Computed example of a mutant assay.
Amino acid sequence: MSIKAIGIDLAKSVFQVCVLLEDGSILWNRKVKREKLLHTLLEFPTGTLVAMESCARSHYWGRQLQQAGYQVKLIPAQHVKPMVSAQKNDANDALAICEAAFRPKLHPVPIKTIEQQDIKALRCVRQRMVEYRTALACQIRGLAGEYGVNFSTGIKLLRNQLPESVEDGDNGLSFVMRGLLLRIERELKALDEEIKAIEQEIHQLCKQQPRYQILQSIPGFGPIVAAAFVSEVGDGRQFSNGRQLAAWCGLVPKQHSTGGKTRLGSITKAGNKQLRVLLIHGARAVFAHVAKRDDRLGRWLSNLIARRGKCKAIVALANKLARIAWSMTVSGNQFELTHAFTVSK
């Protein structure tokens, strides 16, 4: 009996485990309770390939199985779904995971360390708070607008103008509305303090990562973008080159080619959404000061804007920054502007 792979369809309490043999037959495919999973897998020889779909709890089980001596592969969900040959159920999903593990050119999801998991968790909480702060600011503008009081765009201007508007007795705010705005202002300040505290904790954790400091030397890579890159990409060795990383982030054009005709469209937006958004925001930050840059980056971006326009230039710069970050992560080299950007004469 030679085992080819073990596929696990993860769940909260009951998992589906499929054991696939080298000849393509199924040894068994049955449900296993959470507390008995490790005991069940220990019946198989160490070094056996265990495949799981990358989802909630997959990194935890990946670490547990690696410690037990198994080879673990986390499969992106979009590669598992096409392998389901019949109707969707747990047994077919577990078998599809086994088959997807051997797809060519598959980029498995690296198993996150505890440190990377901590950074990821802090980033998720921070993102939720930032979104809630934005919603809170929009609510302030909407409520105050019904009384004829308008605030400028931007969270910084809102912080400055809100206390002045509450204290101004000549505007149209009622007594009840002034009290309500004071409560919301306190909530806004509390959110600012929480977000700042989380950012400091992220920074302290990321200092322990070997590539965190050098990544911040890349234009557009601040502490948050560098932290996201470190926690999501890891050592980057799951990719053969920078373009594969850019494709994984969804920063390459969609392709619809046939009959020798190549048709390229907008970016795919596949893969890691959070990292893609942060890379584009970083590119926008560089773009905001492009007129003041008289170096290779400034000239490269100016030429690109002249040819393709501002929006495409921003996405192209995000793609370029992702490739540079991958190269620096894998090689450990410092950022050099003359090597990163070349300007055609």
Rank of each mutant, 00 (worst) to 15 (best):
I3P: 03
K4T: 05
K4I: 03
A5Q: 11
I6V: 07
G7F: 01
L10E: 06
V14K: 11
F15V: 01
F15R: 10
V17D: 04
V19M: 07
V19R: 04
L21G: 01
I26F: 02
R30I: 10
V32A: 05
L38E: 12
H39S: 13
T40P: 04
F44S: 02
V50G: 03
M52G: 07
E53Q: 01
S58E: 08
G62E: 01
Q64G: 01
L65P: 05
L65K: 08
A68D: 09
G69Q: 06
Y70K: 09
K73Q: 15
A77I: 08
Q78R: 14
V80I: 09
V80P: 02
M83H: 05
M83R: 10
N89Q: 07
D90H: 06
N92M: 05
N92L: 00
N92A: 12
A94W: 08
L95D: 01
A96G: 02
I97A: 06
I97P: 00
A100K: 06
A101P: 03
P104V: 05
K105T: 00
P108F: 08
V109T: 08
K112C: 02
T113H: 09
E115Y: 00
E115M: 12
D118P: 00
D118G: 01
K120V: 02
A121H: 11
R126M: 10
Q139A: 12
G142T: 12
G145V: 04
G145S: 13
Y147M: 05
Y147D: 01
G148R: 10
V149K: 04
S152M: 04
K156S: 10
L158W: 00
R159D: 12
P163R: 08
D168E: 06
G169L: 14
G172F: 11
L173T: 00
S174H: 00
G179N: 15
G179F: 08
L180M: 14
L180Y: 13
L182T: 11
L182M: 13
I184H: 05
D192C: 06
E194I: 11
K196W: 04
I198Y: 07
E199Y: 04
Q200G: 05
E201W: 00
R211E: 14
R211T: 15
L215M: 10
S217W: 02
P219D: 06
G222Q: 06
A226R: 08
A227Q: 09
S231P: 03
E232H: 13
G242T: 04
L245P: 04
A247R: 03
G250E: 09
K254Q: 15
K254L: 12
T258Q: 03
K261G: 03
G265Y: 12
G265F: 09
I267N: 01
K269H: 15
K269M: 04
N272G: 02
N272Q: 11
K273M: 03
L275Y: 04
L275C: 05
V277A: 12
R284F: 01
F287D: 02
H289R: 14
R293W: 07
D295K: 06
D295P: 06
R299Q: 15
R307Q: 11
R307S: 11
R308Y: 09
G309N: 02
C311T: 14
L317C: 02
N319F: 03
I324K: 04
M328V: 05
T329S: 10
T329G: 06
S331T: 14
G332L: 10
L337R: 09
L337A: 09
A340R: 07
F341A: 05
F341E: 08
